[in-house]
Amino acid sequence: MEHNKEQMMVAALENGSVIDHIPTDKLWTIAQLLNLDKCPEEVVIANNLESKVMTRKGLIKISGKFFSEEEISKLAVVCPNIRLTVIRNYEVTEKRQINLSDTIINIVKCANPVCITNNEPMKTYFNVKDLTTLKCRYCGKEQSLDSIKLK
């Protein structure tokens, strides 16, 4: 049943992107990150769907939307391991797992209030350590990936 329902939701898209395997508690963060409240296109947001790989999941479908690499790396920071599907002319043209890159530029805010990045109009820059920790290039302070604030 679940399979069919999902297929139906994805198949209905002519051109656009589907973000799948979103942890249920991250769905609204992602929606906010993508400014979906201001999106003029057709948007489907679903949560608590049954899933084979996770207990429950969220899914977002946006018509006419193709993500830039910058947007994708932003998504990866908020929730690693989501799946992105790109659809053109009703056909899946790309399906990929989104992974965290080694460096995260201008997406995350440094948690250190006396870091130069919080006091100067400039880009933030973090190195990713062991896929769990971000280290600020400027102040050297580390923060855990699951407690980050976006810029």
Binding site: V114, I116, T117
Partner: peptide
Amino acid sequence: RHYLEGAAQY
């Protein structure tokens, strides 16, 4: 010399 951390790197 600066009071903010990371100022020299920047």
